[in-house]
Simulated assay, not measured.
Amino acid sequence: MGLCFLLTLFLGSFFGSIFMLGPVLPLMLLSPAWYRWVTDRIVATWLTLPVVRYLYTIVSFVCTALSTILIVSKQPYRVENTRARSDEFAEKNGLPKYEYVLHPRTTGFTFIVDTLRKGDNLDAVHDITVAYPQNIPQTERHLLLGLFPREIHFHVRRFSAACLPSSAEQLQRWCQERWREKEQRLCAFYRSEPRCFDQPEARVPPCKSQLRVALIKAASLLYWSAFITLCCAGLWLWTPLRLYFLLMVIFFLCQQRVTGGVELMELACHRHNPRVNQG
C-alpha cells in the first residue's frame, strides 16, 4: 500500500508538471499574476492527493487570509547530526536544549515578516504544532512499508499582524518564546494518557461536513488515478504526445541548470513585466 501511494504521488507530480503546468508556462511572460493564480490552483488540486488520507482533519484548519506565515513544528526526525547542531546552537546562544523541537531560524522569520509588512501583505501568523500519538514515520522506508500515522493531532493558534512586535530583536524573542511553548506543549502531550492537547477540540464548520470531505476524497482519487492512466496510455499510443513530453522534460532540465528553477524564472518575469512595474 505504501509503495503504491508513493508511486501515485510521484507520477501525479511528474505528469502534472508536464501536462498541467507545462501548457500554462507561456502565461508567465504575458501576465505573471495570472500565471501565479492558475498554478496555485493546479498545485492545490495535486495537494488533495497527499492529504487525502487525512483530509477531514486538515481542512478543519484552512483559513482565508491575505497572506499567512505558517510556523509548523513537529517532533523531529531522530537524526543525531540534526539534534547535535540544534544543541550546539543552544549552547552558543545560552538557550535551553529541546527534546521535541529544533530551535527556530529566527533571522529568516523576522526577514519574512518585515518584508511582508512593508508591502502591507501580512494578515496573520498561524502557529501550528503537530503531534503523533502513535506511530511516527521517520524515513521514506516507513512510508514504503505503508506505516502511515494512524492519528494526527494539531494545535493551532492565530496571531494577527497587529499584535506582533515591531522591532526585529523583539520579533526574534517572540519566535523563540513560541518554540518554548511548543516544547512544553509536546512534552505534556507525550506524557499524557490518552495523548492529546490540553484544549477543546475544534468544531468542523457545516460547509466541511463528513459527506463533503468524503466526496472530495473520492473525486481526488478518481481524478488522479484517471489522469495518470490517461497520461501513460497517451504516451504509449500517441507520437505527438511523446514529442511534447520529451520537449518539456528537456526544457525543465535546461531551465534548472540555466536559471536555477521555474520559481526564479517567474520572479524575473514579475520584475520585468511592464504592467507590474507600472502598478
Results as ranks from 00 to 15, higher is better:
192 S>R: 15
116 L>I: 00
121 N>W: 11
191 R>S: 10
278 Q>D: 09
115 T>F: 13
243 L>K: 10
233 A>D: 01
68 T>L: 14
88 E>Q: 08
214 A>F: 10
187 C>E: 15
276 V>K: 08
254 C>D: 09
155 H>E: 02
89 F>W: 13
116 L>Y: 06
19 F>K: 02
60 S>L: 07
42 I>M: 10
69 I>F: 15
206 P>Q: 08
37 W>C: 04
56 Y>N: 03
134 Q>Y: 13
45 T>G: 15
132 Y>E: 04
98 Y>H: 08
46 W>K: 02
15 F>W: 08
159 F>R: 05
149 P>Y: 05
23 P>I: 08
17 S>T: 12
237 L>F: 12
229 T>I: 05
29 L>F: 15
85 R>I: 08
50 P>L: 06
5 F>V: 10
92 K>R: 15
169 E>L: 03
16 G>C: 00
239 T>C: 06
163 C>V: 14
149 P>D: 02
244 Y>V: 00
36 R>A: 06
192 S>N: 10
210 Q>T: 10
188 A>G: 02
59 V>K: 07
113 V>A: 03
67 S>C: 06
11 L>F: 09
129 T>M: 11
211 L>S: 04
91 E>K: 06
258 V>D: 00
59 V>R: 08
213 V>Y: 00
136 I>S: 00
45 T>M: 14
184 Q>N: 12
3 L>T: 11
26 P>R: 06
114 D>S: 10
24 V>G: 03
119 G>W: 01
132 Y>L: 11
197 F>D: 06
178 R>A: 13
74 K>I: 05
231 C>W: 08
199 Q>M: 13
113 V>H: 03
177 E>K: 14
262 V>P: 02
107 T>L: 02
96 P>K: 04
25 L>F: 13
32 P>F: 04
37 W>I: 00
253 L>R: 13
190 Y>G: 04
237 L>C: 11
244 Y>N: 05
93 N>A: 02
221 L>T: 05
96 P>D: 00
246 L>N: 03
165 P>E: 01
